[in-house]
């Protein structure tokens, strides 16, 4: 029993770090852009499909990762410039671009299904060497995924908290109008945030494509887990997004002890619903602009 728990916790740490990275990516877009972007799910899927390597050689893998990251970052930028910048210019309420982002997700999901087929596309087998950590086991690929996702997310949190770019983003999050008055080029800063968030979202996506294959709606469930993480800790605590993501990943895995695996998805959404209702007070008052 204890070895099962250890294995589930380890699996949870791997999926949780990926969830944490996605949560940081999502939260950057939310704070800087000012609305919930479901397109993070599309960026994730685009990254995963673009990162599919032709062969399992190290060069091919690296090229595939670079391709996945570039495509995802570019997709984030294109969505911003083609769709969301227009809403921002017209000062639409946050619900409008949020609904439009649902439309974008539907478009991307179906375009991917037409281009690559609706089924699962598996990648060449890589990183299958197994390592033991106590009574639990981990493949080399998953260990690399955990370290890379965690490292990239920490780097982004650092950018947000300790650099001039982060200060600019926080100024825009507090008040885009005041930021513009102070000479900040708001649209350019938002585009840069999209590039960074797209890059960060692509990293767990590339590993997910290698580990378990790609499907057009593959970004939806990780995104909802990421939103749950951000909502659980609030939008003001960058390090908390990563930690909450890890916590959700572990909780999701440990829940398998109580529920069967087929209920896992439903469990995440029920948890999400409960989080939203539990944090009602904060959400009613609103978080954005309170810095």
């Amino acid at each position: 029993m204890s070895s099962t728990v250890a294995q589930l916790v380890l699996n949870g740490l791997v999926s949780g770090t990926a969830c944490g990275a996605l949560a940081v990516s999502f939260a950057i877009l939310y704070r800087v852009g000012g609305f919930y972007q479901f397109t993070v799910a599309s960026i994730y899927a685009i990254g995963a499909y673009a990162a599919r390597p032709e062969a399992a050689t190290t060069t091919q893998l690296l090229l595939a990762f670079v391709r996945g990251i570039c495509c995802a970052a570019l997709a984030a930028l294109v969505f911003e410039l083609l769709v969301f910048a227009r809403f921002r210019r017209r000062r639409a309420p946050p619900l409008v671009p949020m609904l439009a982002s649902i439309g974008v997700v539907a478009i991307v999901e179906n375009v991917l299904a037409i281009l690559f087929g609706p089924g699962l596309r598996v990648s060449p087998l890589v990183g299958l060497k197994i390592m033991s950590i106590g009574s639990a086991y981990l493949t080399q690929l998953r260990l690399t995924a955990m370290l890379t996702c965690g490292g990239a997310a920490i780097l982004c949190v650092f950018v947000l908290q300790r650099t001039d770019t982060g200060i600019v983003w926080r100024a825009i999050a507090a008040s885009p109008e005041l930021a513009a008055i102070k000479g900040i080029r708001v649209q350019r800063a938002i585009c840069f945030a999209n590039l960074l968030a797209g890059t960060l979202a692509a990293i767990p996506a590339c590993f997910a494509a290698l580990d378990s294959g790609s499907r057009p709606p593959m970004g939806n469930l990780p995104l909802l887990a990421a939103i749950t993480a951000v909502l659980a800790v609030g939008s003001q605590t960058p390090a908390g997004w990563l930690l909450a993501g890890v916590g959700i990943g572990v909780l999701q895995q440990v829940a398998i002890l109580l529920l069967t695996a087929r209920w896992a998805e439903t469990f995440v959404f029920a948890l999400f619903c409960a989080t939203l209702l539990f944090r009602k007070k904060v959400l009613i008052d609103g978080e954005r602009g309170s810095t």
């Binding site: 409008v96 439009a100 439309g103 478009i107």
Partner: peptide, 20 residues
Amino acid sequence: ANLQGIFYGLVLVITLSLRP
């Protein structure tokens, strides 16, 4: 079926863009 999905998505994006 996928074209239907693309069409629904486009309707959402375009209608909201034109009439926010």
